[in-house]
Design a protein around this nucleic acid. Structure first.
Lengths: 247, 247
DNA sequence: CACGATTATATGTCTAGACATATAAGTCAA
DNA sequence: TTGACTTATATGTCTAGACATATAATCGTG
C-alpha cells in the first residue's frame, strides 16, 4: 500500500477525523500513565511524520489538549504532560424544577413572601452594591412529591434586571424566571452546613437542630449584581452530586 | 490607509491576536445580551470580510466559542447563540495542604489510624468492587494553624494502586500521595450536611450536634476504583467556594 | 566562573486555497 | 398536500506553505 493511499482520506473507513484521532491517541497515553506528568510529547514535526499530515492538523489536536489543561506548551521547549494539580468537580445546578423532575419526582412550588422595596443597608451589603436602588425580596419553597425539598431566600436587584418587576413569582419560581430571562451570568457558590433554626425547621418540616446544607449563590451579569440567593436543604436527605473529572 | 496596511500585521500595535479579538468581540456581544440566545452569528464568510482575514482564522474563533458552549454550530444553517441551560459551578478541590496553605495558614497533619487488610464486605460495598482484594484503611486529620480543619476517613484499593502499600502515610497525607502518584482520575463528589457525632466532634474539637459539611469522594482510574474518602469539615467555619460560570 | 549577546528552534498565528458532508430549501411527481 | 429527490450552502477538516516570537542553548567576554 502506498503512502498516499494510506493517508488521510477523511471519510473513508476511519470514522473520527484525523486530528481527533491524534488527540485521542495522546490523551489515552496520558490517561493510562504511559506518558507520565512532565513527559515531553513528540514535536509537531515528529507527529506530522507519524500521522502523515500537515502541521495545522497536529497543531489543532495539541491546542485542544492544551485548552483542556492536559498538556502544557512552551515555545522552543515543546509540549509536556501536565501534572494533575487538583481535582475539579463540575457542580451542575439546574433550576429547581429541572433538578426535581430529573429525579422522577413531581415538582411543587409555593411563594411564601414577595415584596418590592428600596434596598435597605442589609440588602445593599448582601448584593454588594453601594447605591440604594429597588430590589425584590422573595421567600419561597420547592417541594418534591409534596415533601419540602428546599427553602429559598432571594434578593433581586431591579436596577440590573428591571424586567423582573413585571414577572409573576407566584406562578413561576424566580430561579427559573431569571435563568430564562437573564442572558448570561457569572456566579459564585458557597456551600456550608448549619443546624436548622426555628423558621427553617418549620418551612422544611424537619426538627430544630437538624443539619441543613446551605448554598449561597451570587450571580452577576457583566459586573452588575443580578441576584443573591440562599437555599436551605435538609442535610440528611439531600445530596449535592458533582461528577467528573481530573485536572 | 489602505486595506492591506489596515489588516492583520500580527504583532504590530494590537496586542491580542486576530482570532482572539474575533472571539472576544463575539463573546462580548453575547454576554451583554446584544446577541440574545437563538441569534444567528454572521456566517464565516461575512466575518472574513469584516475582519479581512482568511476563513481558518474566523473558524478558529468560532470553534473555540462552540467548545465553550457559548454558541452552537449547525451545518448549512449557521452558528447560533446558545441559551444558558444551567448554572454549572466548578468546584476545585485541591489537596488539603494546598488548600490550607493557599489560605495563608500553616498546614498540619496527623495520622490517626492506618491499617492494611483484606477487604471486608463493608469495604467492598464502599469501594464498589466485588472481589476481596487488599485495602488500606486510613483515618487522619488535617489542621490549619493548629486548629482542626477536617477529618478524613479513607479506603484505598490496593489492587488498583499496589504502589500505595509502600507509601508512608504517617509522613505524607494519602490525598497528596495519590494525587502525585495516580496519573489520572475520574471522580464523583457527594456533598451533604450532618450533625457531629461523638467521635467526629472530638476529632474536630467541636460540640456534639454541631453542623458538619461532609464530602464523599469516589475516585476511579479507567473503570477501576482507586479510593473512597469521606471528609468532615466543621460546617459553621468552613466554606466550599465554587466560582464561575454560566453555561 | 558569571553574565550578556547571539542563534537555533518549537510553537503561535495566519493564508489561500481544497474537498467532504450534513442539511435547509427548493423541485417535482403522485 | 405530501413525500421523494435534487441542489445549494455553511460548516468541518485538511494542505503546504509563510512569518512572528519566545526562549533554550550556545558562544564570547570580562
Amino acid at each position: 500500500m502506498s503512502l498516499a493511499s494510506e493517508r488521510a482520506k477523511p471519510g473513508a473507513s476511519s470514522k473520527p477525523t484525523l486530528y481527533k484521532r491524534i488527540r485521542l491517541d495522546i490523551e489515552t497515553r496520558i490517561l493510562t500513565g504511559e506518558w507520565p506528568p512532565g513527559h515531553r510529547i513528540p514535536f509537531e514535526h515528529q507527529l506530522m511524520a507519524r500521522y502523515r499530515c500537515s502541521r495545522m492538523t497536529v497543531n489543532k489536536a495539541l491546542s485542544e489538549l492544551a485548552q483542556a489543561d492536559l498538556i502544557e506548551r512552551r515555545r522552543r521547549a515543546g509540549s509536556f504532560v501536565r501534572r494533575p494539580q487538583h481535582l475539579s468537580a463540575v457542580l451542575k445546578i439546574a433550576d429547581m424544577r429541572a433538578e426535581i423532575t430529573a429525579l422522577g419526582r413531581s415538582y411543587g412550588y409555593q411563594l411564601i413572601d414577595c415584596r418590592r422595596r428600596t434596598a435597605t443597608a442589609a440588602d445593599r451589603a448582601r448584593l454588594g452594591v453601594s447605591t440604594a436602588g429597588k430590589v425584590i425580596a422573595i421567600a419561597c419553597r420547592h417541594s418534591a412529591d409534596n415533601v419540602p425539598f428546599a427553602v429559598e431566600d432571594r434578593l433581586i436587584d431591579l436596577s440590573t434586571v428591571p424586567e423582573a418587576a413585571t414577572a409573576d413569582f407566584a406562578r413561576e419560581p424566580p430561579g427559573s424566571w431569571l435563568l430564562h430571562h437573564v442572558p448570561w451570568t457569572e456566579a459564585e457558590h458557597t456551600i456550608s452546613a448549619v443546624v436548622a433554626d426555628d423558621r427553617t425547621a418549620k418551612a422544611l418540616g424537619i426538627a430544630v437542630g437538624a443539619p441543613c446544607l446551605v448554598i449561597d449563590r451570587y450571580t452577576w451579569r457583566s459586573a452588575r449584581t443580578v441576584t443573591a440567593v440562599r437555599l436551605h436543604y435538609p442535610g440528611e436527605t439531600h445530596r449535592l452530586v458533582a461528577r467528573f473529572k481530573g485536572g
